[in-house]
Design a protein around this nucleic acid. Structure first.
Length: 832
RNA sequence: GCGAGAGUGGCGGAACUGGCAGACGCGCUGGACUUAGGAUCCAGAGGGGCAUCCCCGUGGGGGUUCAACUCCCCCCUCUCGCACCA
């Protein structure tokens, strides 16, 4: 007999389909702007329509729905939308593999995933659904691109970029993980190419500053963003090249105080000045060979930071402006062209990398900071101390010496204070088809010209051959490429790169505020009402990718006069991965759980219950099929109980708080305590797992009370309390298991939806205890328990504890040195 | 290497502000019901000592305290992020 045929199971399939239909037909979760009510914008990261939802989706959408429904019940006007991050490479790959057009493939996948999500019974306002591949969506992104272009925030440059040979496109820095493509894991190569960039560096300072002003974000994510932005303060100044008047090398340092210890200087191998410095043919040949060497190596093995540093000594020397001494110049692979000025002063005494290099090349090392007592010169010293061997800086501390050194440079016109960021501008050009076209044209007479706003959108043509063989597929579409110049009307060529799909996901949360708006990106009134997102939920993998881009784009939109918020997401919940057997679910490992199968066998409510119960949301969730059984058993038990007692429950009148039996009073307190616990678990730190375990305890107590109360208490009291407990259980469990609870709510005789009920609040009177159990310890070990009146004086509690029969033997023959009384908790008797 | 986080039963995980470690669930053991049990119900259960009772236990070592999973110091292990960023 198969599991599915068990007659004991409640009819979840029927119930779930029924309530999904009811909610949809009544448009129960439709969000309408209403200034008289507090709003709550609950958003989960929208999915890429890959074809099927996976367990990670089940988890994140279960979390989001719990919060959304909870907030509904708390009286908030909730916006809870869903849509599709619909542009992207997999659609193109599917086209290459199966000959299906990316648009067709994408729309089929959306239809399939939409129906899967509907079967989960999530409280979305489906009327706000959007897909980013819709021209009605990306036209606004193109408009913003034009505005950014006009302000210099979008620009084109030739540069060395990250090239994914498999995806055949540029990647942004954020999309390279340890030298590999974030999507396909191929090794990324350096390639010199022209591409479009967004000037995110202009916002580096503000993005960093707000990292301290978003208390609703996990510290972990903020730390990652701070590190990614990588602000460093220091100075930039010129080193004159000896014997070459007018020729100087600009360097950046965070330690201008160590300038007197500069014993050589280093340029990045690709530094543009190298050609001017290597004058004769032999020197040029050496430089060329060295560059090739470095290029080959850095492609092969750049992961090991501790590999030996390679260097090439140039024939020319530079001048240390602080000491007036000549110092050798090197090319070395440990200096990067992409950071600072691509050249450094080397201070081996106080920088470990310079120290390593100096050791390998026999270069002098000078200490410019006094070492602590017992310091052995086996490595660079990077700690604090007093300046030595540093001319006018001697005797100063490091911080003061930095300021003095910068002043000195400024006075002589040699340099200035400078702030650098690790963050680079966001490369958004993709040499691929399935993305939003960049609305730029190239005209022989006018040059680079943005498309006229009244001609937007630049629609992505559908009749395209996708071969996957390099180059932008759009370049082969004559009808797309050849166009009239927006300025002079002459012949022009369209840009054939498309935008990074992270651009679409950088503003979809704004579009949800007014998804059908046709006069602009979004209706500013609607956005002013709904924004910012009050709770954003998504995976940690976007800690710097999407979450940094979205913050940047929101600030750009604000500065363009569109958005009214500084930050898009007030609070962020980063949920952990779903793993099984200790590993991330993947086809190759054969440990994939299919949500469809799960819902078919157990129902959506069970799938949601287990997803929320098995682990707190920020931790990885270890999927366990037996655990799902347990969740299912719990719902069945509740279902059976309510149906077995339906007549009693329906007939019951609320238990009167006064005149309850002691057992009844205790049970009533359990109910109220559960309400309290569940509420704080949800509100305080999203600990849904403990909230659910509290409800499970209530159900256990309910079954127990049902067993023992038959003879112990009056019929009226029993039925009233059973009803109170059952109603609390159903209400508290509603946001977790909405279908079965809605059905049970109706079965109890209610005619209005469970999700229109106010969230229960605990009765303070019932929570109050008359007696408390006090732990009695002797020398820190539990030896007994006494029950005392809550109002008992400390002395009385102490006397009772010392008199307790279990405690007394531990005191005989010992002298009581001290008694610690913690009111309401414990007594600790310290003996000598 | 730098930065962040985490180490608690056989497993997932609880434990408020320092106050009974192991809630809840899984698995396990025993029992009931049953033709049957992979359903359901009841009971048990960190490890050890025949045991009402006691000892030992939150990665390891030290410390503070009447009292430490929780606070402080040192060490070990694991996960994640960055990876020569001057």
């Amino acid at each position: 007999m198969s599991i599915d045929d068990r007659p004991e199971r409640y009819p979840f399939a029927e119930i779930e389909a029924k309530w999904q239909r009811v909610w949809e037909e009544s448009k129960q979760f439709k969000a309408i702007e209403d200034l008289s009510r507090p709003k709550f914008y609950c958003l989960e990261m929208f999915p890429y329509p890959s074809g099927r939802i996976h367990m990670g989706h089940v988890r994140v959408y279960a979390i989001g729905d719990l919060l959304a429904r909870y907030k509904w019940m708390r009286g908030f006007n909730v916006l809870h939308p869903m849509g599709w991050d619909a542009f992207g490479l997999p659609a193109e790959n599917a086209a290459i593999d199966n000959g299906v057009h990316p648009a067709v493939w994408t729309h089929e996948n959306i239809a399939n995933m939409r129906s899967q999500l509907r079967r989960m019974g999530i409280s979305y306002d489906w009327d706000r659904e959007l897909a980013t591949c819709d021209p009605a969506y990306y036209r606004w992104e193109q408009l913003i691109f034009v505005r950014m272009f006009e302000r210099g925030l979008a620009y084109k440059k030739r540069s060395t970029v990250n090239w994914c040979p498999t995806c055949q496109t540029i990647l942004a820095n954020e999309q390279v993980e340890a030298g590999r493509c974030w999507r396909c894991d191929s090794e990324v190569a350096a390639k010199e190419i022209e591409g479009w960039f967004f000037k995110i560096i202009d916002y580096a300072e503000e993005l960093l500053a707000w990292c301290d002003r978003l208390p609703g974000w996990p510290e972990r994510v903020m730390t990652m963003q701070r590190n990614w932005i990588g602000k460093s303060e220091g100075a930039e100044f010129d080193l004159p090249v000896v014997g070459r008047p007018g020729l100087t090398i600009r360097i950046f340092t965070t330690r201008p105080d160590t300038s007197f210890g500069m014993t050589y200087a280093v340029l990045a191998p690709e530094h543009p000045l190298v050609d001017a410095l290597a004058t004769d043919a032999a020197a040029r040949a050496r430089v060329k060979a060295f560059r090739q060497d470095v290029a080959r190596e850095s492609e092969m093995e750049r992961l090991a930071a501790d590999r030996p540093k390679r260097g090439l000594r140039l024939d020319v020397k530079a001048l240390n402006p602080f000491t007036g001494q000549e110092i050798p110049l090197f090319l070395a692979d440990y200096v990067l062209m992409g950071y600072g000025t691509g050249a450094i002063m080397a201070v081996p005494g106080e920088d470990q990398r310079d120290w390593d290099f100096a050791q390998q090349h026999g270069l002098p090392i000078i200490a410019t900071v006094k070492r602590p007592e017992g310091w052995e010169e086996t490595q660079a010293y990077t700690g604090d101390g007093v300046k030595i061997n540093s001319g006018f800086l001697d005797g100063l501390g490091i911080a003061a010496a930095k300021r003095r050194a910068i002043d000195w440079l400024v006075e002589r016109g040699l340099g200035e204070a400078k702030v650098n960021y690790r963050l680079r501008d966001w490369g958004i050009s993709r040499q691929r088809y399935w993305g939003a076209p960049i609305p730029i044209l190239y005209c022989a007479s006018c040059g680079m010209v943005p498309e006229r706003e009244d001609r937007l959108p630049v629609v992505l043509p559908e009749d395209v051959q996708i071969s996957g063989k390099g180059g932008s597929p759009l370049a082969d579409v004559a009808g797309f490429v050849n166009a009239a110049c927006p300025r002079c009307g002459g012949r022009a060529r369209r840009e054939t790169d498309t935008m990074d799909t992270f651009v679409e996901s950088s503003w979809y949360f704004l579009r949800y505020c007014s998804p059908q708006f046709t006069d602009g990106m979004f209706d500013s009134k609607a956005a002013a009402y709904w924004m910012p997102v009050d709770q954003y939920i998504g995976g940690i993998e976007h800690a710097v990718l999407h979450l940094l881009y979205a913050r940047f784009y929101t600030k750009v939109l604000r500065d363009l006069g569109l958005a009214t918020v500084d930050e898009p997401f007030s609070a962020l919940l980063s949920q952990g991965m779903v793993i099984k057997d200790g590993a991330k679910m993947s086809k190759s490992k054969g440990n994939v759980v299919d949500p469809d199968e799960l819902i078919r066998r157990y129902g959506a409510d069970t799938a949601r219950l287990f997803s929320l119960f098995a682990a707190p949301p920020e931790k990885d969730l270890d999927w366990n099929d037996r655990g799902v059984e347990g969740a299912s058993r719990f719902l069945n038990r509740l279902w059976r109980f309510i149906h077995a007692h339906l007549d009693e429950l329906r007939a019951a009148s609320p238990a009167r708080p006064a005149g309850l039996s002691p057992a009844g009073r205790a049970f009533r307190r359990t109910i109220q305590e559960t309400i309290q616990r569940v509420t704080t678990d949800i509100e305080k730190d999203f600990h849904f797992n403990t909230a659910i375990s509290a409800v499970m305890e209530l159900v256990n107590a309910l079954l127990e009370f049902e067993r023992v109360s038959m003879d112990a208490v009056s019929r009226e009291e029993r039925q009233g309390l059973l009803r109170a407990a059952v109603e609390a259980t159903v209400l508290l469990l509603g946001p977790v298991c909405p279908h079965v609870t809605e059905e049970l709510w109706a079965a109890l005789g209610h005619t209005e939806s469970l999700f229109k009920q106010p969230w229960p609040t605990p009765d303070a009177e019932a929570l109050r205890r008359q007696e408390v159990e006090i732990v009695v310890q002797v020398d820190g070990r539990v030896r007994g328990h006494v029950t005392v009146d809550v109002s008992a004086a400390e002395q009385e509690v102490q006397d009772r504890a010392l008199a307790d029969a279990k405690v007394r033997p531990w005191l005989s023959g010992r002298e009581v040195a001290k008694v610690v009384v913690v009111p309401g908790r414990l007594v600790n008797v310290v003996t000598r």
